[in-house]
């Protein structure tokens, strides 16, 4: 067994896991942060996307044993004090959520993007979510939502 300590949404956690346990399993089954979803389990769909030290990764293909000392952000870290984050509010306002299964992964990919470029061009937005599959709304509303969050940050309210 491996004892690993990491920060998740700012909170320090220590868990003891088998080598075969994935980061996704720890997030969902041990820490009960079930906003992060398992879609395919092989890194294809992006539903399990979280930020690992600021970088979007698919948590289904990372072993929990690997993340000792890391800092992880999940969808639960977005809203603060009952207030939706800029991206969450933009997804609501742009109608970018239908069934909602892909949404946490989409928002974490977008969060990673805004972390490395607060004012990304459209191509960068599309590339940033290219690893997140949505089967309901189509991608346009999602891209619009991310653009809306960027615009609002710039002070161009709409």
């Amino acid at each position: 067994m491996h004892t690993v300590s990491f920060r998740i949404n700012g909170q320090l956690q220590t868990v003891t896991v088998a080598a075969t346990t994935t980061l996704l399993e720890v997030i969902r089954d041990r820490l009960h942060l079930t906003g992060t979803k398992e879609g395919c389990g092989i890194g294809e769909c992006g539903a399990c996307t979280v930020l690992l030290d600021g970088a979007p990764v698919t948590s289904c293909l990372i072993l929990a044993a690997e993340v000792d000392g890391a800092s992880i952000e999940t969808i639960e870290g977005e809203a603060k004090n009952g207030q939706l984050s800029d991206l969450q509010q933009a997804f609501v306002d742009a109608g970018a959520v239908q069934c909602g299964f892909c949404t946490p992964g989409m928002i974490m990919s977008a969060r990673g993007l805004l972390g490395r470029n607060p004012d990304p061009p459209d191509e960068e937005i599309v590339e940033a979510i290219s690893g997140n599959l949505c089967r309901c709304t189509g991608y346009e509303a999602i891209v619009e939502a991310i653009k809306l969050a960027v615009k609002r940050k710039r002070g161009e309210y709409s």
Binding site: G43, P56, L61, S109, E127, A128, S130
Partner: peptide, 9 residues
């Protein structure tokens, strides 16, 4: 190669 998330790993 693959997606942005996978290329981070």
């Amino acid at each position: 190669i693959a997606t942005y998330q996978l290329r981070n790993r």
